[in-house]
Amino acid sequence: MKKKLVIIIIFFGFAKIQAQDRITVAIGSNSTFIETYNKNSWSDEFTLTEAYRLGPTNLKTLKEGVKTSLKWIDLNDTHNKTFQKEVCRFKTTEKESFKFHGYVDQFATEMVMIFNGEVDGTFKIEIKPYNSFLVFITFTDVEMLKGFKDLLDGKSANNEVDDIFKK
């Protein structure tokens, strides 16, 4: 039986400096890989910064966390409160470690999604290793988060790419 691998790419173009310039999501039959890239200052090329594998259960948890965050964005915009809240936790494995060992719980990293709402209605959502200052992905724009949700749901940022895979 052939395994189907769909690669979906989204580019984030925005004025604010973020933790990543580009995010890719590759969805396979039993694994989803999320990779971040930064644009090189000396060329137009991108360099891989981090790559993680999520299993089906952890992918579901992340998707639910993104949906919850979208609801909280609307609430924060309405109520204009400053708060910080953990949205969800899920386990990932670094891509290279997964390729070498497969899934081993001792090599898994617990990730956390944190929502930070501000009194002016703005927000910041970070996905990072639990109890770490290092940030894997940062969202400060609702459209960026919606685009990420679409990627996790198997939709592309580019409708032409979706049409190719439908054929």
Results as ranks from 00 to 15, higher is better:
135 V>L: 02
50 E>A: 08
13 G>T: 02
20 Q>T: 09
91 K>Q: 07
132 S>T: 03
40 N>K: 13
93 T>I: 15
161 V>Y: 08
143 E>D: 08
127 I>V: 14
81 K>T: 15
50 E>Q: 14
2 K>N: 08
19 A>N: 04
18 Q>G: 09
144 M>S: 10
161 V>H: 12
104 V>N: 12
20 Q>C: 08
70 L>V: 08
141 D>S: 07
83 F>G: 15
140 T>K: 07
64 E>C: 03
163 D>R: 14
134 L>G: 10
125 I>H: 01
105 D>C: 05
33 F>A: 10
139 F>K: 02
40 N>D: 11
8 I>L: 09
83 F>N: 14
166 K>W: 03
42 W>S: 13
49 T>W: 00
124 K>N: 10
140 T>W: 00
11 F>R: 12
82 T>G: 14
100 F>L: 15
126 E>T: 15
65 G>N: 04
59 L>W: 00
50 E>S: 10
126 E>C: 14
108 A>K: 03
47 T>I: 07
5 L>A: 14
5 L>G: 12
135 V>H: 01
164 I>T: 10
37 Y>S: 06
34 I>P: 09
13 G>R: 00
27 I>H: 03
18 Q>F: 11
6 V>E: 11
103 Y>N: 06
90 F>C: 08
117 G>E: 10
130 Y>M: 08
67 K>P: 00
152 L>Q: 00
42 W>A: 09
139 F>N: 01
16 K>C: 04
115 F>G: 08
61 T>W: 02
1 M>S: 15
157 A>F: 08
135 V>I: 15
50 E>L: 09
128 K>G: 03
9 I>P: 06
107 F>A: 08
